[in-house]
Every structure is written in C-alpha cells, then in structure tokens.
Write a protein that binds this DNA or RNA. Sequence first.
DNA 1: ACAATTTGACCTAA
DNA 2: TTAGGTCAAATTGT
Length: 348
Amino acid sequence: MTLLVVGPQQGDDELQAQLRDLMLFFMPSPTTTKVDDDQSSSGGGTEGGQQPPASSSSSCCDGRRRRPRGSKRGRPQDDDSKSYNGGEQHLEPPRHKSCKTSCSRKQQNKQRRQKMSGGTSSLVTSVPDFDGYQWRKYGQKQIEGAIYARSYYRCTRSAEQGCPAKRTVQRNDDDGGAAAPKYTVVYMGEHTCTPNDDSMEAPPIILETTTVVPAVIKSTNNRRTPQDHHHDGTITVTSVAAPTSSSGGSYCSSSTSTNNTVTAGIDDSPAISDDITYWSRLFGVHDSWAPATAAALQEMEEDYFTGPIRSPVHIAAADACWTIEDHHLLLQQLASNDQHPTVSHFSF
DNA sequence: ACAATTTGACCTAA
DNA sequence: TTAGGTCAAATTGT
C-alpha cells in the first residue's frame, strides 16, 4: 500500500500523522488482522469454516410455530421507520432509561455473543454503511439497557455464496446532543463471497475533488451522515479539525483486499474511540457526482440514501484530497500556493 | 413479480 | 429464566 502525499510542507507533520491514522483505517490486509473485542480469543481470526449461522443448523423445519396467515402486521409508523441499509430505526426510547447497572451487563452479553460467533471486530462510526459491502437486514432487536434497537445484517451473498459475514449496527445511546449520531458496528465472520456485482468490482473513479475549510464539517447539502450515501462507488468527504492528540492508536484495521472494505477494530480506550469518531466525522460526506441540475440536487437533498458506500473513496479534506485506490492510498494535498509541492510516500 | 424490510415468534447460551 | 440472535410471514418498495 502506498500513500502519496503531495502538498506544501507547512503543517505536514500533523497532516501526515492524520494520514497514518487514516491508513490504518483503510489499510487492506490480506491476513486480516482484526481486533477481537474478546481479547482472550486472540487466536480466533477466521478459521476456514467461520461458524455457520448456528441458526440454520437448528433444523430447517424445526418446531417453530409460524405466524398464522393473515395476521396483519401493520407498520408501526410510516414516518421515519424506514431504515436505510445500515442504520436502524428510532425506537421509542427508554424502556431502560437508567442503564447504569446494565451497562456492564451489556458488555458481558456482548462478549458472550462475540465469543460464540468467533472473531469479531467493531467500529464506532457515524456512517455505518461505509464498509463497501452490501448487507441485508434480517432482524432487529431492542437490547436491554439500550435506547436504540440493534439491527442485524448479513451479507447479501450469504444465500448464493454462503458468505458467513454478518454485522450488527446499533446506535449509541450517548449521542444525544451530538451533531451526528454514532453507531457501533460489529462485524462477525469474514467475507468469503466474491463480488459479482459490477459496481462492487469497479475500480475507483474520481469524479470530483473538493477543498474545504478545516474545522468545519462542510457538506454541500448540510445533511448529516449517515444518510450521505452514494451508490456509484465514490464519495467525497469533507474534513474537520484533527483531534488534538492523535492517539498513537493501538487500534488495528483490516479489510478484504478486493473491496477495500473497512472493518476497523478498536479497543475501548477513549483516545482511540475519539480517533474513530474523528474519522467518522471525517467521513461526513457529500455527493461527489453531484447532479447537474438544482432540481436534482434538491431531490438528493431530501433523499435518504439507502445503499452502501463502496470504496474506493475519494476524500477531500481540509486542503487535501485523498484517493483510495485499490491497495494504494494516494493522498494529494492540493498545493495552495506552493508551486512545487512536496511529495511523501507511505508504504504498507 | 421480485427484492428488501419489518417484526413477532422462536431458539439457545448463560 | 432471560437477553440476544435468527427465522420467516407479512408488508412495502421498485
């Protein structure tokens, strides 16, 4: 993996530090080094079989009682009950408003489940769809002590190709006043599927570069993530100020090499979470293939995106534009007034 | 018509 | 017994 930085020297240290973090975030790894949330099961990873959906083993025609035909199941509410792919509904909060005690319990349960399901990695993000894969929702559950329901997804190719990859997406409880809601995404299992979708395989296409003012989340439509999704494999991202202290991050990242899928694992250290949050904020995106007409723009503005974001990524941040391409991350910092920008390489 | 989502029922590990 | 994960009919969207 190669990171190419083109830009003026000034302030490069900090920028490059950020870039290293970004590299960690996007770095594809053929060996997939995931951070197991369950530290003890370090050997885990994903051995070939990767735990078949235990459920399917529960004899297909088990004694499960079927819902009687005709039992209508009205939609609870038509308004925002739509779930974009990767988000989850706003549920009526707080059956368990006081989750002081249940938090540890939650973690125990989480660990329990994750242990059951083998290797996992988790990610806190405001753009839960930003992982390059297509997921199909197969369930939703109100979790004890959590305000928001957890959504369960499996790879859309689980049926055709038996891909065992799954993930859960849950909106964090404590994002009440935050500008953008944060989601905890837990990935379970590894993708064994091979993309047969053209768009999944399409090489990165740079449609546009954008330069924005630092420290400002600039979105062309002022829409918050995670609704800022695109369908054509390209996104444009604006940047915010970097965290004051770059975590020296012990978080690891991994991704399948074919799709540049981000499955960054984090530990629970606040600093690292902050970094992840930072990059999540960084990925507040706006449409890079912006429609030509104002009407179309308006339409997009009002639209909720439903598809996954697929890498490659084209990022515009501060005065830098980053393009993530195949296994190469190329960063080009636009030279503002420097005629001969410096070039730096990061190789991985 | 087909695909995707919703959601109550069911299963299972702790 | 319970919480979390999964199933699958019904519903909704395209």
